[in-house]
Design a binder for these strands. Sequence first.
DNA 1: GTGAAAGCGCTAACAT
DNA 2: ATGTTAGCGCTTTCAC
Lengths: 335, 335
Amino acid sequence: MLPTIKDVAKKAQVSVATVSRVLHNLPGYSDITKQKVLKAIEDLGYQPNAIARGLINKRTQTIGVLFPNVSSYFSAGLLHGIEEVANERGFSVIVCNTDGKRTIKYLQVLREKQVDGIVFASEELKDEYYQALTDMRVPFVLVNNQSHKYSIPYIKVDDRQASYQATQYLIQKGHREIAMLAGTQSDPIAGTPRVEGFRQALSDYGIAFHESRIAYGDFLLEGGRIAMRRLLDEAAPFSALFAAGDEMAIGAMGVALERGLRIPEDLSIIGYDDLVIAQMVFPPLTTVHQPLTEMGQLASKKLITMIESSDPVSSSIVMHHIVERNTVKELNQYK
Amino acid sequence: MLPTIKDVAKKAQVSVATVSRVLHNLPGYSDITKQKVLKAIEDLGYQPNAIARGLINKRTQTIGVLFPNVSSYFSAGLLHGIEEVANERGFSVIVCNTDGKRTIKYLQVLREKQVDGIVFASEELKDEYYQALTDMRVPFVLVNNQSHKYSIPYIKVDDRQASYQATQYLIQKGHREIAMLAGTQSDPIAGTPRVEGFRQALSDYGIAFHESRIAYGDFLLEGGRIAMRRLLDEAAPFSALFAAGDEMAIGAMGVALERGLRIPEDLSIIGYDDLVIAQMVFPPLTTVHQPLTEMGQLASKKLITMIESSDPVSSSIVMHHIVERNTVKELNQYK
DNA sequence: GTGAAAGCGCTAACAT
DNA sequence: ATGTTAGCGCTTTCAC
C-alpha cells in the first residue's frame, strides 16, 4: 500500500489537516511542525493521491483529446503541441482515437473520468457530439475544424485563402494550365474550401477552369496516386498541380516519376500541410505550411484558460505560409 | 452539477445501494425496481463518476505511456496500437512526452494520478527510472527497449538479427562493397546492436570490413544527410548502403540524388523501420519492417494482463521482415 | 497554531 | 429484495 496522508500525519505526530496545510503552503503551523511533516513525507516517499483530490476539488487536471486517427502525421504534430502546453500548465492528456466511429463512446469515457476539458480535433462536430459535449459541462475547443452552427472556439488556418495563395503562387511562376488534386469531396472543412480557393484564384487571374483538371482523392497517398493517374490520362494537359494535401502530392509525384515526368522540369507540384515528409522526399516538396505544433499549443492554452477562468475565449485563424522547396519551376516565358 | 448516484436513488425512490447493484448487474432486486432505476438514470442522464469509483477500487482503468518524442512516426505507430487495445479492454491512456528529460517528473504525475500501469517506450531504463517505477507499485513494460539489469517484460525486434539480415540481403543481391549509416553511437538499443549485425554479416560472408565505410548519424533526416556526405566524400567506394533508420535512409537518398547518383542503378539502399514514409518516397524504399502497431498492441495486452492478474508475463521478440521495394539493385555478376 | 469532523460519489459489508 | 453505513484519501470549515 502506498503511504497516505494519514501515514504522514501519524509519523509526524500531527493531524492530517496540518499535513494538508503544509502540502499546500497554507498558513497555520509553526516552522518546527513544518519540518516534522516534511521529514515524514520524505521518509515515507509520500505523494498525494490525485484521485482523492479530484473527488473533492471537482478538478482532475486532465484533458481529453479526440482524433480520428492518432497515428497520422497530422495528429502527431497537433498532439505534440497540445501535450506540451498542457504539461506546462499542470494538466495530463488522455488521447482517444475515434477512428471516425467511437466518438460518442469516448465522450462518455471522458465524462466518467471527469476530464476538465476537451480538444476535439479534425472531425466534424455533429449535433450528437455537440449535445454530448455540452451535457458534460466542461469547456471544449475545436482544432482544424469549425462549427458554423454553434459558436465554439476553434483553431485553424484559413483553408480557402491558403488554397488561393498556393494557386496564385503557381500562376505567378508562370503556370496557366493548372490541375488540382482535391481532398474528400464531401469534407466541409478541408474539402470544399480548398477547391473554392483554387477556383477563385484561377478566376481572379482570368484563367479558364476546366472541370477535367480536378480530381478527388481522400487525402491519402494511394488515393492521390489513383487520382493522379486519372488526371494524367484524362485531363487536358497541365504544367502544374496543386494537391490539397502533402500525402496526395507525394503520391502524385511518384506517379509522375513512374511515367517518366521529371519534377519540376516537366511538372510542377505544390502540396498542402507541410508534413515532415514534405522535406524528406526528393525533390523536396514546395507546400503550404500549417503550424501544427502551434495549433496544438493554442488549443491547450485556450482550453485551459476556459477551464481556469470560465470566461469565453476567441477563435484563432493561424497563419499558413508557402514553403518554397524544389517542386515548382518558374516558366521561362515569364522570366 | 452533474447528477450523482444519490440523485438517481432519490428519483427512483430506492437506496443508493440498489442503484449501484443495477449499475453493476449484481443480483438482489426485483425487475420492477430495476426498471424504475433505469428510468431514473435515463431521465437524469446519469453517468457514474470514475474518480469516486477509482478511490474505492484502487483502480483507475488508466495507463500511462512515456515517449521521448510523441510526434515521431515511430511513437505515433506505437501509440496507435497501444491505444487500440487499451480501449478495447476498457482502459484510457495518458500520453507523456518526456523529451528525454521530463521522465521523472512524468512518473510522479502518473503516480499521483494513480494509473494502473505504464508503458515505457524507446528510452533507456535508467536506475533512477526503475526505482521510481517500482516505488509506484504498478506493473510496467518496456517497448523497443530492454533492460539487461532488471527483468522487465519487453517488446522489441531483434535488432542485431534484423541488421544482419538486411546486410545479408544486400550481399545476396551481389553487393560486396557495402557502407553503413549507423544510428547514435552510444545508443545501446538501436545503435550498437545494428552495427554488430552488420559487421557479423560481412564477416560471415568473407567480406572485409572497412572502418571508413561506416558513418554515424542520429536517426534523423538531417543527420543522415550529413553522414551520407561524409561517406560519399571519404569512404572507399560502395555499391550499396545499409541505413539503420528510414529517416536516415531517406536523407541519404536525397544526397545521392543531388549528386547525380541514380537509385538503385548507381547505388542501392536498404533502410530500417518501415515508417509510412518509406513507401511514399520515390523510388519506394526497401527496408526492414518493424510492426509498430503490433508492438503497441502487445505492450497493452501484456500490461493489462499484469494489471488484471498480477501474474508475470513474458517478453516478446516480434518478427521483422524485409520489405522489398525499389531501392536495391541485383548486381549482374551474380545473375 | 492545531485538530476534529464533515463530506466529495461511490462500493461493499452488514442488517433487515 | 432492499436499506444503512463505513470508509476510500483528501480538503476545508469550524472549534479550541
